[in-house]
C-alpha cells in the first residue's frame, strides 16, 4: 500500500525507457505460437505474425475470426495462454505500461467517454505518455497536426459526446496519431466512416508508414486492403490462413473458402487494381 502511494514519486525518479529507432523493414512487433482463450473458447490458436516498420499490414478475415484479439495481443492488452508477444525487441510483459505507451498507439473499435471533455482535450490525451520527457515539447504541434490530418480541427471546442459516430471515430484516430508511436494498431478505423474519410484514413496509414512507423489495421473492406496495404494477413479460425502482399493473398479460392461465400477478384478496367467482389446472383 505504501509502495503504491509513493508510486508517483518513484516514477519521477526512474523515467521510462525511451523507444529506440528502427530502420524500415525491421520487425518491431510480433506474435509467435499465440493461443488466447476467451470465455472458454480458443479465439486464437497458433497464430504467428511479424509486424515490420515502414509497412502497412492489413488484418482481414470473417467476423469472429480473431482479428481484434490478435490486435489486442499485439497491443499487450491480454495475457496469452501460450506463445509469446514481442514489442520493440522485448517480450511485451517486460515493458511497463508507461513504456508501452511510448511504443504503440491503439485505436479501439468503439470510442466512449465518461465525461464531456472537448475534442481538443480528448486528442491532447494522446500526448499523456510523453509528459515529463523531452518530447513533451512536441505536444502542441502533434495535437494540432493530428487534428488537421483527420479533419477534426473545426470541432476542437465541441464536447466529444455531441459528435456523430463517424466524427468520434476520427477524433479517436487523431488521439492515436497524436501519440506519435512507431507502432500504430487500428481496429476497424473505417467502420463508421463515409467514402471520402475511409480513403483519408488509409492515406494517413500509408503516410505514417512512409515516415517509418509500422501500421497494423483491421479492415473488412478487401478493396481498401488491396489498394493500401503492403501486406495482408488473412485471419481465419484463430490462425493466420495466409500472409503476404494483397495481390498474392487475395485469390478467389482462398477468400471464397475463408469467408464461406463465393468471391471473384477482377482487375479494374482502367487502373488494373484488384477488386474483390462477392459473386451475386
Amino acid at each position: 500500500m505504501i509502495r503504491d502511494l509513493l508510486a508517483p514519486l518513484r516514477s519521477l525518479r526512474r523515467p521510462p525507457l525511451p523507444p529506440t529507432a528502427a530502420p524500415p523493414g525491421t520487425t518491431v512487433a510480433g506474435v509467435r505460437g499465440l493461443r488466447v482463450r476467451l470465455g472458454g473458447r480458443a479465439v486464437l490458436d497458433g497464430a504467428d505474425l511479424a509486424v515490420t516498420s515502414g509497412r502497412v499490414l492489413a488484418l482481414v478475415g470473417p467476423n469472429g475470426a480473431g482479428k481484434s484479439t490478435l490486435l489486442a495481443a499485439l497491443a499487450a492488452d491480454l495475457v496469452p495462454e501460450a506463445g509469446g508477444v514481442e514489442i520493440d525487441g522485448r517480450p511485451s510483459s517486460h515493458w511497463s505500461s508507461a513504456e508501452l505507451a511510448l511504443r504503440r498507439a491503439v485505436l479501439p473499435q468503439s470510442a466512449a467517454l465518461a465525461f464531456p471533455f472537448t475534442v481538443g482535450e480528448v486528442v491532447a490525451m494522446g500526448r499523456a505518455p510523453w509528459a515529463g520527457t523531452p518530447w513533451e515539447d512536441e505536444d502542441e504541434e502533434a495535437v494540432a497536426e493530428a487534428m488537421a490530418l483527420t479533419e477534426v480541427t473545426e470541432f476542437a471546442g465541441r464536447p466529444f459526446s455531441a459528435l456523430s459516430g463517424g466524427e468520434r471515430a476520427r477524433v479517436a484516430l487523431a488521439r492515436a496519431l497524436a501519440q506519435r508511436t512507431s507502432l500504430l494498431l487500428l481496429d476497424e478505423p473505417t467502420a463508421a466512416l463515409d467514402l471520402r474519410h475511409q480513403e483519408l484514413v488509409l492515406r494517413l496509414c500509408r503516410r505514417r508508414a512512409a515516415d517509418g512507423a509500422a501500421v497494423v489495421v483491421v479492415l473488412h473492406d478487401l478493396g481498401l486492403a488491396a489498394a493500401y496495404a503492403d501486406r495482408a494477413a488473412v485471419v481465419a479460425d484463430g490462425r493466420i490462413a495466409a500472409d503476404g502482399p494483397p495481390q498474392e493473398v487475395f485469390t478467389p479460392g482462398l477468400l471464397s473458402q475463408v469467408y464461406g461465400q463465393p468471391v471473384e477478384v477482377v482487375a479494374h478496367p482502367r487502373t488494373g487494381a484488384r477488386l474483390v467482389l462477392p459473386v451475386r446472383g
Binding site: 525511451p18 523507444p19 529506440t20 529507432a21 528502427a22 530502420p23 524500415p24 518491431v28 516498420s53 515502414g54 520493440d88 511510448l102 511504443r103 472537448t118 481538443g120 518530447w135 504541434e141 502533434a142 494540432a144 497536426e145 487534428m147 488537421a148 490530418l149 480541427t153 473545426e154 470541432f155 476542437a156 471546442g157 465541441r158 496519431l177 506519435r180 508511436t181 512507431s182 507502432l183 500504430l184 503516410r207 505514417r208 512512409a210 515516415d211 517509418g212 512507423a213
Partner: peptide, 26 residues
Amino acid sequence: DSASTTDTGGRTVALVKPPPPGGSSP
C-alpha cells in the same frame, strides 16, 4: 473557442512536416 482553434489548425496545416514516429526517429 472554436474560432481560435481553427486558427491554430490553419497554422499547422501550413507547416505540416513529416510526423516523426517516435520509434523511427527519436
